[in-house]
Design a protein around this nucleic acid. Structure first.
Length: 276
DNA sequence: ATCCTATCCTGGCTGC
DNA sequence: TGCAGCCAGGATAGGA
């Protein structure tokens, strides 16, 4: 599923194709993708705008807009589970699952494609409408071991659901939480307020290493859904140590990886390497 | 404060 | 081969 590394990959690939482009028209095939406004309002808001900057926050991608020389809010997107973004020539066939298409002034078209319809492409007068409640960005300098230690201690929750909570740390999803916890030797059912300073520091380092390595590999593609905007799969799924490896040996100790359910999420864990 | 369940969706898989 | 039923999963709302 698209998490921080996948969205970062998407942003890096679409940025050069969107920056400085003007939106000339739009075609909305599934209105609910717009997240609450009707297609007419959406079109009035975005058509005629120029995209000034493309960036990422957590699992959101953002395209800042400007019209008549003045800031005009932003397009804010979330791929949820099966969303994809393509920026392609007019002749490109986006397939049956395209939800919103934005025609650009260089002849290309940005397509928002989504099989399961959970993804969203909002127009926001201010991007904080979607981004305001998010927690710390795990690749920011402010995300230190000491910060994480204190933050974990200030809550009394199971560590995995807490790491998935986007108001706590923004950008991690099921895959990278399982991988980071394994690399840090922490059991997903560990209580957040019982994690020591040393182990919190280790967890911070492993979260950052996991995300950084995944970005280098252009994300993870373990099923048919996630592809880069150029249609290529990512490569990080080959590095998974626990995710999707139930019954297979732990790369560290050889014990069979177990699959349990934590917070209604499939959770992959090595009982020998990960301590509660 | 925290946890649990349902909801949104549909392709793909399992089992008969 | 066909089909019913279940599952995955990010985020959120509402209830316990």
């Amino acid at each position: 599923m698209p998490e921080l590394p996948e969205v970062e990959t998407v942003v890096r690939l679409i940025r050069p194709r969107l920056a400085e482009r003007r939106i000339e028209s739009c075609d909305v095939r599934w209105e609910r993708t717009l997240g609450g406004i009707d297609r007419g309002s959406f079109a009035r808001a975005v058509v005629g705008s120029r995209i000034t900057r493309v960036w990422r926050r957590a699992k959101f991608f953002v395209a800042d807009l400007e019209r008549a020389g003045r800031s005009n809010g932003a397009l804010v997107g979330h791929l949820r589970m099966t969303g994809r973004v393509h920026v392609e020539p007019r002749e490109f066939d986006p397939g049956p699952y395209v939800k919103v298409s934005l025609a650009l002034d260089d002849g290309r078209v940005m397509h928002f494609i989504d099989v399961r319809k959970f993804g969203r492409l909002w127009y926001a007068a201010h991007s904080d409408e979607q981004l305001g409640g998010l927690g710390i960005e795990p690749l920011d300098d402010a995300f230190t071991g000491e910060w994480l230690f204190r933050a974990l201690r200030s809550r009394r929750r199971l560590v995995k659901p807490l790491l998935l909570d986007q108001t706590f740390i923004a950008g991690l999803g099921n895959i990278y939480v399982d991988e980071s916890l394994h690399r840090a030797g922490i059991h997903p059912l560990a209580r957040s307020d019982r994690i020591t300073r040393v182990r919190a520091g280790r967890l911070r380092d492993e979260i950052r290493a996991t995300l950084t390595e995944a970005i280098e590999r252009e994300g993870s593609s373990f099923d048919v859904f996630y592809r880069t905007p150029e249609g290529n799969p990512g490569g990080y799924q080959d590095e998974f140590k626990v995710y999707g490896r139930e019954g297979q040996p732990c790369p560290t100790c050889g014990r069979a990886i177990e699959r349990i359910v934590v917070a209604q999420r499939g959770t992959h864990v090595c009982r020998r390497c990960q301590r509660r």
